[in-house]
Nucleic acid binder design. Structure first.
Lengths: 222, 222
DNA sequence: CGGCATCCGGGAAGATACTG
DNA sequence: CAGTATCTTCCCGGATGCCG
């Protein structure tokens, strides 16, 4: 057996080579990223992947379904819509996505001011937070990017992200992903972000300030 | 700034997306794998990457040099040959390569009987060895695949691989990468491998048998 | 032989338009 | 909204050939 899907095949027993067969096509790994916090609809995926065209997204989803990374699920009526979600093994790709990101961020070519999706910045929190800096702290924060909502829980050893209504969190941040990145990874003070009109903080701003201190971007390489 | 190199650009602040720009093209990450244990010449790279064409290899090396992953070095006369090697930051891609491989190997599509390069199996040792199984053991083994030679040192917390003449090691294994994989990851006994004529063991076979017990392939998903 | 340029055929990606 | 159809452009792979 060599060539179950497609024509171009590395024909290599190396796991990395197989990984590239599975998610090495353009956009594939970013689709996995978008699915990392739960099932998404076709149009939601498109929104998180600016530049992808519908036919490519269709192809990738089909292929990743065929190889067991993605499954499609039809929500019960009356919602009756279809969502794509990761299989349990698909979710296990998270460390691979994180390692690649952690390495690439050190490139001089990395431009943190570009746009990024809500799923991207949530993933970056899971990738970049420093348990050492968190210490024994324990916090819950809500984030709202338009209609994409998240609740992030930090408890010292773990940072968890789930898509959920943030009302009731001690602090809720309503903003855009790049603005949040500027506050967490850049030097932008919370009040400056609010002054731009692109961030609204409800509740205890100090929780957000502390949160921002727990993340470090690795320094650039040579 | 958006598009320093090439036309297709994700334009995404996400580190993973940048990683895909850098090493997401076909063959790129496998070239990095081949360079992981030291500089290699053009033809040596081709040998480790069956199926790559010369022009694609040239393109990838050029691009990876431009983005700071690869550097070329001219050996002093009279050798006077050029080798491609990783930059220090390039070497730091190892965890990303390993994570991807560790994840992909659990796919039902993984076929461990396919061919693989010497660098691949050495990388797999670094990826798959279980410090728990090694315990307090400490061993040195030599491997010889035609003219590619390696010395592997295991000392409980660390497994190191270097390209070096294996003479003088307590055990030296002269074989092919797939045969070695069959012994280490499959169930093939050392004496069966020798009986095929594709493996010659010089020195203490028990060292090799113990070595083989330190590696576990993760079980298949779903 | 090592490295790179050039040409060609096929296939994958991107853009747009269209349909259920 | 969730895709399909179509067309164009670009990339990949193979072959050849040049030049050190």
């Amino acid at each position: 057996m060599a060539n179950p899907l497609g024509k171009r095949w590395y024909d290599d027993a190396c796991g990395t080579a197989l990984g590239l067969e599975l998610v090495g096509e353009r956009w594939a790994l970013l689709i996995v990223r978008e699915l990392m916090f739960g099932g998404r609809r076709f149009s939601e995926l498109r929104a998180g992947l600016p530049g992808i065209s519908a036919n490519v997204l269709t192809q990738r989803l089909e292929r990743m379904e065929a190889v067991g990374i993605v499954q499609r699920r039809k929500l019960p009526p009356p919602a009756n819509v279809q969502v794509y979600e990761l299989t349990p093994w698909g979710y296990e790709a998270e460390p691979a996505i994180q390692s690649l990101g952690r390495w690439a961020v050190r490139s001089p070519l990395h431009d943190p001011t570009l746009d990024l999706s809500p799923a991207s910045i949530m993933m970056s929190f899971r990738t970049m937070y420093s348990a050492e800096r968190v210490g024994t702290a324990s916090e819950t924060l809500g984030f709202r990017f338009g209609d994409e909502v998240f609740v992030v829980t930090v408890d010292g050893t773990e940072l968890t992200v789930r898509r959920d209504e943030p009302d009731g969190c001690p602090v809720v941040v309503d903003t855009t992903p790049p603005m949040l990145a500027a506050v967490v990874y850049g030097d932008m003070p919370v009040e400056d972000a609010e002054a731009t009109g692109q961030m609204t903080v409800t509740g205890d701003r100090d929780v957000l300030r502390r949160f921002a201190s727990w993340f470090v971007l690795p320094e650039k390489a040579g």
